[in-house]
Write a protein that binds this DNA or RNA. Sequence first.
DNA 1: CTAGGGTTAG
Length: 607
Amino acid sequence: MVTPVTPCLPPHPLPLNNDTTHHHHRRLLHYLTQCTSISHLKQIHAHTLRTSPTQHNSHSLFLFSRILHSSISYDLNYAFRVFDHIEEPNTFMWNILIRACAHSSDRKKQAILTYHDMLSSGASVGPDKHTFPFVLKACAYLFCLSEGKQAHAQILKLGLDSDVYVNNSLIHFYASCGCLDYARDVFEKMPERSVVTWNVMIDALVQAGEFESALKLFDEMQSSFEPDWYTLQSIVNACAGLGALSLGMWVHAYVMKICDSNVADGVLLNSSFVEMYCKCGSLEIAEQVFERMHKRNVTSWNSMIIGYAMHGQAEAALDCFARMVNEGFMPNSVTFVGVLSACNHRGMVSEGRKYFDTMITDYKIEPVLEHYGCLVDLLARAGFIDEALDLVSNMAVKPDVVIWRSLLDACCKKNAGVELSEEVFKKIIELEGGDCSGVYVLLSRIYGSARRWNDVGLLRKLMSDKRVIKQPGCSSIEIDGVAHEFFAGDSSHPQTKEIYALLDTIEERLESVGYVPDFSQAPLVDELEHGKKHSLRLHSERLAIAFGLLKAKPGVPIRIFKNLRVCNDCHNVTKLISSLYDVEIIVRDRARFHHFKRGSCSCLDYW
DNA sequence: CTAGGGTTAG
């Protein structure tokens, strides 16, 4: 009885005449369910308002839902105008209005406001299980912790706390507000979970940098669910964070096996693989993945450029940048972080200045803290400390601890003088509150090289008064998929005996080729004076490297991850070991990679 | 009608 109406436009498929019969009304409704053109919907709406005021409300409702339906682009202003005409909006109507706001790019706040309007609109309608995912999404985006908590209270009051969707939204919300404990609490107490539940919880942990916990949860998950590509995406990021190369490779193989080509060839996933391989120290595989990608976007290029930069391959990074531009991609703010960081790791001062200017004038990109960070560090470490200070005081952004710290680091390396160093030191303490151990060590080294032992002592007292705890150096190495961790001076490893015996042998061989320890960066001068002459050889990476040598397979590089930066002496020693034992050693620093091979390092001793 | 990023300086 209802004549089918084809939804294609144009030509106009529905005559807008003054027919108000039941038949026409049905045709109109049917058409509305198929129409995907917002301008045409508006047209019909206007017509309906003119010709059949009696059907106004029901049509408005219908139009309203159609207009806000996800297949049609949102027109929030129009939606709110229509909504105002609806006499008694039901829960469904409120929900889709809230959804529209939550999905919008610039009016998420209105989702929360509308939710409040809904609550106070009368007792006959109220939120239901569909409402909260939208509201919580907005809260998560806006970091509105208290608003979201109120919604949570409402959820409990309405007895919706067993709904999977609602709980998943709660986990995501709490996690993005930084309340991992609350998120976990919701996760633990849920009566029922879905793949998404595990995914949001795993991703929450990854985002918070709790990679091991994320992997543990990933393990647990697999007894009840098969991971999907979303899970794998998070796990790849966890591998990148941990530097867990073999697990990352396993995930890569797994993705190729279970995912169809649409997913396996996806830009997002492959960009993550590029990033993961770079962060795990395998630039070669990263390049392979990148070159084989069928489709790329700005993020893919950025991952590769940043990867090159991390490994000190400035030329490759800049070539990659040029190629990207050549292929018509528009570099963004992150691209330039990569480019500037590449210049920084090679000490390319004039190029760095040039790209910084290009970014501002040619690409109209406002420099942010990270850009300034690269440039300041580049200038200062290359010896242009005055220019770096000048930049810091004229920056459009407030300098942060990282910037001051890199200045202090440069002051130390370049012997910039005690007065200047003290001033920079003060800035850091102002910002950080004084519990960052690294800067005390730097300043004491500066005092030490100026032979101001008195100040060294005072500083040491200050440290113990303020209970500043030195961050212990820690290095890890992955052997057959298992991570082995070593702290400085550690003797807790099951194979400690062999490790220390090998360290003795290494020492002998080093001395036979004329090695002399470099104490210039020994942690604190008085440790030296108290006879801890061996503290250098007990640096955590030495233990890890020794263990790596014990377990080494011919031709396979030894990969080490260190939480701090390598010191001069370890850098020397590692270079020598790479030639004495004919082995490639790849070290991921706090800031970058060093590839030691045949007695030299990829950083060319500039780091 | 309901759930799940975007990357970044040392």
